[in-house]
Amino acid sequence: MSAGRPRPTRWWASRAAWLALATLAVAFLAFGSVHNVPSFAARTARLDSVIKCPACEDLSIAQSDAPSAAALKRRVAGFVRAGWSDARIESWVTARFGLSALLVPQQSGVSETLYLVPVAVVGLSVAGLGWFLWRRRAGASDGAAEDEEPAPALRERR
């Protein structure tokens, strides 16, 4: 078939196939993600991953087998069982070992700044992209595609 308007049936079939694909992907991703419910293990795992091993350079207590890391893991598990909130446990850790005992800074101002930077970079990037694309109105172009498909015989119709 030569290039031109596609047949309506093929047009609908193609969209239906993509719709089915998207539906299946969402369904399977949702089904595969349902186990992620908050639990004792999930809470302790998260806390262990943000508390720095006292005997290590840059590892969390979850990543370290050092005796001090193991002892701290037991304390954290005990606090979780006792019903402490995550914030209270993190405060206890910083009170005892200092601000650098958490792998993510918690003090006011510092943490916000750290996370604001990527947000600002993304924001500026989006703004820059918008400006760049807006400029294209000024540039004259025929808008014709330039293809690099390596097999002319297999090129799709546009």
């Binding site: 991953s49 200092g98 601000l99 792998l103 993510v104 800074p105 003090q107 510092v110």
Partner: peptide, 15 residues
Amino acid sequence: VSAFDHQEITVGAPY
């Protein structure tokens, strides 16, 4: 932070 706020902080894997 260490230079201007005189605090020792760690930025690790969770961030």
